[in-house]
Design a protein around this nucleic acid. Sequence first.
DNA 1: TTGTTCTATTAAAACGTTTTCATAAAACGT
DNA 2: ACGTTTTATGAAAACGTTTTAATAGAACAA
Lengths: 332, 332
Amino acid sequence: MKNKAITIKDVAKQSGVSISTVSQILNGKSDKFSPVTVAKVQQAKADLHYEPDYFARRMIMKTSKTIGVLVPDITNPFFGELIRGIEQVLYQASYITMLCNADLDETKEQGYLAELSHRGVDGFIIASSAVSNQAINDILRTKQHPFIVLDQKKAEGFSDAVLTDDFEGGRLAATHLKQLGHQHVAVLMPAQASVNVQQRLAGFKTVYADADIDRIDVPLSKLGGRQAVPAILKTAATGLFAINDEIAFGLYLGLAEAGKQVPRDYSVIGYDNVEMCEYVTPQLTTIAQPIFELGQVTAEILLARIKNPDQPWDERRLPVKLIERKSTAHLN
Amino acid sequence: MKNKAITIKDVAKQSGVSISTVSQILNGKSDKFSPVTVAKVQQAKADLHYEPDYFARRMIMKTSKTIGVLVPDITNPFFGELIRGIEQVLYQASYITMLCNADLDETKEQGYLAELSHRGVDGFIIASSAVSNQAINDILRTKQHPFIVLDQKKAEGFSDAVLTDDFEGGRLAATHLKQLGHQHVAVLMPAQASVNVQQRLAGFKTVYADADIDRIDVPLSKLGGRQAVPAILKTAATGLFAINDEIAFGLYLGLAEAGKQVPRDYSVIGYDNVEMCEYVTPQLTTIAQPIFELGQVTAEILLARIKNPDQPWDERRLPVKLIERKSTAHLN
DNA sequence: TTGTTCTATTAAAACGTTTTCATAAAACGT
DNA sequence: ACGTTTTATGAAAACGTTTTAATAGAACAA
């Protein structure tokens, strides 16, 4: 770590000029200096393999070229894909991604948020629904950190937002099920869901009456879906709307364990269109979000805000579509 | 970002003591000062919500309480689980994880490595097999960064290492297939595989003769497995050893597309025991690595090395076991 | 009393940069 | 030839900490 680190002073000495000359030349102000001086400095830099000290530099610059990204569950491939999108544009803008996995633990999430703030990241992307508005206000808003939170309907116009058309997604899922003749359906989602998930339900309800919907509380995981099956069997539902694909995968196993077949006994439709949907049997019908693009757009908006903090709030809404595969069928 | 940031100077002024007094009290040297002074400082700190500037502090301390983690493909649930393990112990030691996703791109990987080094992370965990020894030497070894690379048989004893018993894993897979009566088998793995993958093959070969093995080159992805199926059909193999679960999942789809059934027509066995194995139909027989634990141990070893840079090299080998499920069956 | 050891505190140096402002030399205009 | 602008460079201030060494006073020992 401390292999007698070489500093700007060494470069200055080696090239026979002053420290400030070196600094300026190395920071793009070369045209203010004579070509020969510039050359000497470049040479010395190369010879010594000099790299400016990150911390010293940032102490003055007040910018770290780093974005903090907070996800709730890195194990969920949805977030994997999202991160890929985010990272792609961040990388090109030569920002580095500081990824933190809250692991569905709110305390941990708060801790990371504080820690990231503390470390002076230039901006935040929060893909975690557990984080409270309280925390956002305390840590981000008051410190005037640029940030953007995903999966969250912006209640008030005090931030940028990128969201997918969750309402339409819910509606799409419902009409598909209805068209297949399912009179009674169950929707599987967490008890206290994030706003975007609630939107899906709202859209769903434009098609099915409350009386025809059984809501079943499940955590957003495969295990959640699997364990929900006994509850499902008690209902009259034949169509199952899993609020994300993970739950749907769990349903597959739970249903199989109960001796039920998809789509003969139950039609199931997921949400997200994770890559795995295509590889599971039967292939999962689902509502596709443009996950990778979602990540890209999010990063772009954040970068834009950092560059120009005073621009008007931006809101981007991404489309959603039904992908019909083999897990839904006509009721007979 | 710069809401007239409050510095240690403000705290000093407010509590009527000197800067250095504040600094020392806030850094655990409280017992050198009178209780009343300590109280005043604590109070002022609380009142002002003072937090020491990260960069100023690190400039002197030369330690960032940060570990850089490099993974090749964040989309692969194996790495998701691995990261969870790593992060769990790092978090408890109040280190923060700086996660970078190389996205199977070697250039990007190098770039991240350099950038992380540049930013003075305290140590590296490299779970990426693409990174060359060349790069490791250039960036890590010469700068004396503590690091540990996973998925890599340590060729020379110049670093810590944690590895799973890949050789045994391969052997286990092979004997299972053999016991089921499969005379001819195919193994699916990348053309130039990392050392750990090669070990799996080596173990596999202790059971099957070269003549009975068809090696098929595939990338380590679902798509890879799927596209390998035509090649498989041309061989006499009835048992399929996918070098990781992702490939196996791909196989499922590819086989189905070719009108073949698992395990009736082909027995397939995977590697890793990713959570999804259980949720896929038929459930995937696989070689289980203790993924989460692997992450934990890795982080622990790295932390130990950071704390005590001169301790002898540590090498940990984790066990592996066969998980028999529904994707393998007796040949008839 | 007087020298000596503690005790509580602080001034100042250091960390490695960037940036601002001053300055000497050179070029220019008349 | 003389004042004025331009050009090339460097000295020093700043960034916000931690750490080291110094200091004044109190407590103590003889």
